[in-house]
């Protein structure tokens, strides 16, 4: 007799647990305000990344096209994947000393793991991460970027 009772009790308990589960999905079915989906390309205007978001490596230039990179190559040394190549030039300053300046600062976005060691290790704070996150391009070559703008120069030169 007890087994029959257990059998029936088991059915009711099981069905009750199932109904409780259905209340959760049923609740969200009618709560349309709980929808979390974001419509991505449409909300591009509103979409704001966090300040520290590591999008891609950039070299900030000021309004007069000056940057802070002196071409020391520490970022290249610190990069674990070899995604930074610094090609520096030698120039002769007005005082007759030879001086190293940055020629091209090449950044391979395709190899970057966004560890942030280059930004952290840069002694002159010349590098930063941008908030750009749409990296898709049709040509792989476009992922290799030159960070210093053409015609730009070191900000210290202005002071001299």
């Amino acid at each position: 007799m007890k087994s029959i009772f257990d059998y029936i009790a088991g059915i009711f308990k099981g069905v009750w647990s199932l109904l409780k589960g259905m209340t959760i999905t049923g609740k969200y079915f009618i709560r349309l305000d709980k929808i979390v989906t974001q419509k991505y390309p449409e909300n591009r205007k509103k979409l704001k990344m966090y300040d520290r978001f590591k999008g891609e490596l950039i070299m900030p230039h000021d309004a007069n096209n000056f940057h802070k990179c002196n071409g020391c190559g520490i970022c290249e040394m610190n990069c674990p994947n070899g995604s930074i190549e610094v090609i520096s030039d030698k120039i002769i300053t007005s005082e007759g000393k030879s001086k190293r300046i940055i020629g091209t600062h090449i950044y391979h976005l395709s190899m970057c793991t966004f560890c942030g060691l280059c930004v952290k290790s840069c002694p002159s704070n010349a590098l930063a991460f941008s908030q750009e996150f749409e990296h898709a391009v049709f040509d792989r070559n476009k992922l290799t970027k030159v960070l210093n703008n053409p015609g730009s120069s070191l900000v210290k030169d202005l002071a001299e």
Binding site: T25, G26, Y28, F29, L32, K34, I35, V36, T37, K39
Partner: peptide, 13 residues
């Protein structure tokens, strides 16, 4: 659509 609404999504749109 039904499953999307149950899962806090919009579904095909």
């Amino acid at each position: 659509k039904v499953c999307a609404f149950m899962q806090n999504r919009i579904g095909p749109n």
